[in-house]
C-alpha cells in the first residue's frame, strides 16, 4: 500500500463528464495489474473528507518511455459526478495527486487459448481497458464491448490493435442499439472458441453479465464496487455479500475482482 505523490501529466475529458487522468508513478512503487485500484486524496480540507477509490485504466512502465529521472505513467478514468470528482477535474498538468496503491486483487489471467470477452459500462471502462490492452500485449485477442447511454457518453479510448472493440448505445446513436448485455448475448452467439467473461460496471450490469454467463455455462469475473473507508482491509466498510459461511467479503482486499458465482446477488 505505498503512498506517493504523483504528478498530473494530463487530465482530459474523453466523453461527456468522463475524464482520463494520466499521472506519474514512482519506480519504487509496484506496478499495478488490471482490476487493481488506487485511492486518491481529493482535498486537504474536511469537505470532501475521504479518499476516493478509482480503477486503474492503463500503465506504461518506466522502461517503455523516456523520462529523466525515470518514472512510470498510470491512468485512471473517472466520472465527474460530485464535489470530489469536480475537484479532480480541475487539476492541471503539474499539479500533485496524493495516491495510495496499487490496492486489491485484480483480474486473473484467462485460460490459455481462450477468447476473453470484456464488457464495461460507465467508469468500468477503465479497468476493462487496462485488462484488454494487457491481454492483447500478452497474445490474446480480446473482444471489448463498451456500453453507454448515448454517443456523447461513450468514452474515447486507446485500445491495442489486437483488441476488437464493439460499442453499444441504449439509443442506437453509436454502434449496436441496445445495452452492453444485449451486445454480449449477440457476441456469445457468433464467436467460437472457449469464451471467458470479464466485466466492470454498474451492479445491474455485473449481475446481468453473471446471469448471461451462467446461461451459457461460461466462467465470468466481475469487479465489484462499494463505498470504501480505509481501502486496505482494516475498517470492514466495503463489504459485499458472498456465498461463503462468513457472508461478506471486503471489496478492497478480497476483491474488487471476484468470480461471479462467488457473489450472493441480491
Amino acid at each position: 500500500m505505498p503512498l506517493f505523490d504523483g504528478r498530473v501529466l494530463a487530465n482530459t475529458e474523453i466523453a461527456s463528464d468522463y475524464y482520463q487522468m494520466d499521472f506519474s508513478w514512482p519506480t519504487d512503487v509496484r506496478a499495478p495489474s488490471p482490476g487493481q485500484f488506487l485511492t486518491v486524496r481529493v482535498s486537504r480540507t474536511a469537505v470532501p473528507l475521504l479518499r476516493r477509490p478509482f480503477g486503474i485504466s492503463g500503465f506504461i512502465p518506466a522502461e517503455s518511455h523516456p523520462a529523466d529521472p525515470p518514472e512510470a505513467i498510470a491512468s485512471m478514468i473517472y466520472w465527474r459526478r460530485g464535489p470530489a470528482t469536480a475537484l479532480l477535474a480541475g487539476l492541471e498538468p503539474g499539479d500533485t495527486l496524493g495516491v495510495m496503491g496499487p490496492l486489491g486483487v485484480g483480474f486473473p489471467a484467462p485460460e490459455p487459448f481462450s477468447v476473453p470477452i470484456l464488457i464495461a459500462g460507465g467508469v468500468g471502462v477503465g479497468p476493462i481497458l487496462f485488462l484488454a490492452n494487457t491481454l492483447a500485449a500478452a497474445g490474446y485477442a480480446p473482444l471489448l464491448l463498451l456500453g453507454a447511454r448515448t454517443a456523447s457518453s461513450m468514452p474515447r479510448v486507446n485500445a491495442h490493435h489486437h483488441v476488437q472493440v464493439r460499442r453499444s448505445t441504449d439509443d442506437g446513436s453509436l454502434g449496436f442499439r441496445g445495452t452492453a448485455i444485449d451486445l454480449l448475448e449477440q457476441t456469445i452467439g457468433v464467436v467460437s472458441g472457449r469464451l471467458e467473461i470479464f466485466c466492470c460496471g454498474p451492479e445491474a450490469m455485473l449481475r446481468a453479465a453473471h446471469e448471461c454467463a451462467v446461461r451459457h455455462g461460461l466462467p465470468a469475473w466481475v469487479a465489484m464496487e462499494q463505498t470504501m473507508g480505509c481501502g486496505v482491509g482494516a475498517c470492514m466498510a466495503c463489504a459485499v455479500r458472498v456465498n461463503r459461511p462468513e457472508r461478506y467479503a471486503r471489496v478492497c482486499t478480497e476483491g474488487p475482482v471476484f468470480r461471479s458465482t462467488e457473489i450472493a446477488w441480491e
Partner: peptide, 17 residues
C-alpha cells in the same frame, strides 16, 4: 459478519458508519 451494505456514507466533514 457485520451489517448489511452500504456500511458507511460520507457526511459534511464526517463519516457515518
Amino acid at each position: 459478519p457485520g451489517n448489511d451494505v452500504p456500511r458507511i456514507v460520507e457526511t459534511p466533514a464526517g463519516l457515518l458508519n
